[in-house]
Design a protein around this nucleic acid. Structure first.
Length: 302
DNA sequence: AAATCGATCAACCGCCTCGTG
DNA sequence: ACACGAGGCGGTTGATCGATT
């Protein structure tokens, strides 16, 4: 017999999400809030499994997600937290509020694993293996200390960025990757509109590419770099019809925020009540004292 | 120009945990 | 105490892209 599948295999769509599906999902969550994923496919008409909806939201559409361009600080934190927590990506992601567990996992598997391995080969030994017990302990202590330091630095950075206006949320680097989901979809639509004359019936497929060769879906609209003129709001104002779609005038949010306002930086996850609950803990306001924090305190490293 | 290969990352799969009746 | 279902998590897969041959 075995466990029945989480959803009907028949009639369930798989593979990359289309812009239309993203819009439907975001619009539904704006109205009803995240959760009760089981009912999402039935209520929205999306031919997707509930898990797929949840995953799409948490890993991609949820506001406050930073994608790509891992900073050195983040890199350090991941390495040390991985050493401390193991492959508990969700736990690690709690310390990196703007990153998803999937993103961290991918980054670890594609970049950091190799990086560390390379380091091992250069040094001839692994960071933990082949080290005499006493040294291993010392090394662990050093690593914990470094993790603590990285953590503190990162947290102080968070504190600074959260306490100032939304402009400060953007990383200091030229390529800002911060985006709310509304922004994401807005950018997506701008590209989509350019390539699809009749958006609703046309159905821009997943992985659809623009003339510039940029993949419209799958993250690139989030990563829209500042150098990409085609993506800039000045050159391509948001479509009016979709502009109203993104106005936050429902019961959960008193103020109506237009796409223009959102793109001008006025619409941030922090002032979006709809999405606020879904944000990861705001480390800037109050650092949650988790087990690892306690442990770090216990060992006298904090 | 075409074929091949490696890197990247979104999404899926299946197990686990937790809440509820 | 137990069964069941929903949601969460980590491992893995597969599509896509750029670099190399």
């Amino acid at each position: 017999m075995g466990r029945p599948p989480c959803c009907d295999k028949i009639g369930v769509k798989k593979g990359p999400w289309t812009p239309e599906e993203d819009i439907i999902l975001v619009s539904y969550i704006q109205e009803h809030g995240p959760g009760n994923w089981r009912s999402v496919p039935t209520n929205t008409g999306l031919l997707r499994c509930s898990k797929s909806c949840r995953l799409r939201w948490t890993n991609y559409l949820r506001p406050g997600i930073k994608r790509g361009n891992f900073t050195e600080q983040e890199e350090k934190m991941i390495i040390h937290l991985q050493a401390l927590l193991g492959n508990r990506w969700a736990a690690i992601a709690n310390y990196l509020p703007q990153r998803t567990d999937n993103d961290i996992k991918n980054y670890w598997n594609t970049h950091l694993k190799k990086k560390l391995k390379k380091g091992e080969n250069e040094n001839g030994v692994s960071s933990f293996q082949s080290v005499p017990k006493g040294q291993w302990e010392r090394r662990l202590q050093t690593d914990i200390r470094m993790a603590k330091q990285a953590l503190s630095e990162a947290l102080s950075l968070e504190k600074r960025s959260f306490s100032t206006d939304s402009e400060d949320l953007k990383p200091s680097q030229g390529t800002s990757t911060y985006a709310s989901s509304a922004e994401n979809i807005s950018r997506l639509l701008q590209n989509w509109m350019k390539t699809t004359p009749e958006p609703v019936t046309g159905g821009g497929g997943a992985g659809h590419r623009t003339e510039s060769g940029e993949t419209v879906t799958q993250g690139s609209f989030i990563n829209g770099s500042s150098s990409d003129g085609a993506l800039s709001d000045e050159t391509t104002p948001p479509h009016q019809g979709f502009g109203s779609f993104f106005s936050f005038s429902n019961k959960s949010c008193h103020e109506s925020v237009s796409v223009e306002q959102q793109n001008a930086g006025l619409m941030t996850p922090e002032n979006s009540i709809v999405f606020q609950d879904e944000n990861k803990p705001n480390l800037g306001d109050q650092v949650p004292l988790t087990l690892i924090d306690k442990w770090l305190l216990d060992v006298g490293l904090f």
